[in-house]
Simulated assay, not measured.
Amino acid sequence: MTGRRSDACAQQPAAREDPPVATTVHRAPGLLRCMLEERRRTDTVWLAHLVICDESPDVTGDDSATVEAFVAAARHGVADTTQALHRMQQGTYGICEACGKDIPLGRLRNLPHARFCVRCQRRAAQRWSAPLPTAPPW
């Protein structure tokens, strides 16, 4: 065998470029689906544990109002993730419900069940926290 390489070996593949960074949900649906499913499992297990604790308050030492607040939060978490998985199935996941623009992937990684982009979420929060009109002093 000589020191020459065959033509096939001489042609080296072009340097691979890094894949583009996923900036929208459309480029990383598998990861987000796994995150949502894991979150729903975790919240469901936590909810079952809390229901048992609510029936036996001696287990946690928490008062019933605290346990009820935890139960409500866990139920809310299960509902949020279930709705997000439904939106994913319908093809509307990752789209802001207010403005119709894509929700950035970074926001969905931090809050996988997000329904609004940050801008629209802030607007909604401002509306919700606006002071109620006061009654006239008379």
Rank of each mutant, 00 (worst) to 15 (best):
I95M: 11
P19H: 04
I95G: 09
P13L: 10
A69Q: 07
R5L: 13
G77L: 04
R123M: 09
Y93H: 06
C34V: 06
A48I: 03
C53Q: 06
P136E: 15
P131N: 08
M35C: 04
S64M: 05
L85A: 04
T82K: 07
T42A: 07
D58A: 14
Q11K: 08
T44N: 02
A48N: 12
D80I: 01
A130H: 14
C9Y: 10
D43V: 05
S129C: 10
A69R: 00
A69P: 07
W128I: 15
D63N: 09
L31I: 03
G106Y: 04
M88W: 05
V51N: 03
R4C: 12
G91H: 11
H26S: 13
P136C: 10
Q90H: 07
Q12P: 02
L36K: 01
A84Q: 01
E17L: 09
G106M: 08
C99S: 11
R119I: 10
H113T: 08
A125T: 15
A69T: 02
I52F: 08
S64H: 06
S6N: 10
H113Y: 13
D63I: 00
Q83H: 10
P19N: 11
T92C: 12
T66C: 02
G100V: 02
A8P: 01
M1Q: 11
T134L: 15
R115G: 09
R4V: 07
S6K: 10
M35Y: 00
R123P: 01
C9K: 14
V67F: 00
P112H: 01
L36R: 01
V21C: 04
A10P: 00
A22K: 08
E38G: 07
P104H: 01
L32W: 03
C9V: 14
C99G: 08
A14N: 12
T2E: 08
I103M: 08
R4K: 15
Q89N: 06
A14Q: 13
Q12L: 06
V51A: 04
R127C: 11
H76F: 08
P57K: 00
C99M: 07
Q126N: 13
G100I: 02
D62P: 00
P131G: 12
A124C: 09
A28E: 13
T24K: 02
L108K: 00
V118G: 05
R16Q: 14
E38Q: 07
G61R: 03
Q83R: 11
Q121S: 06
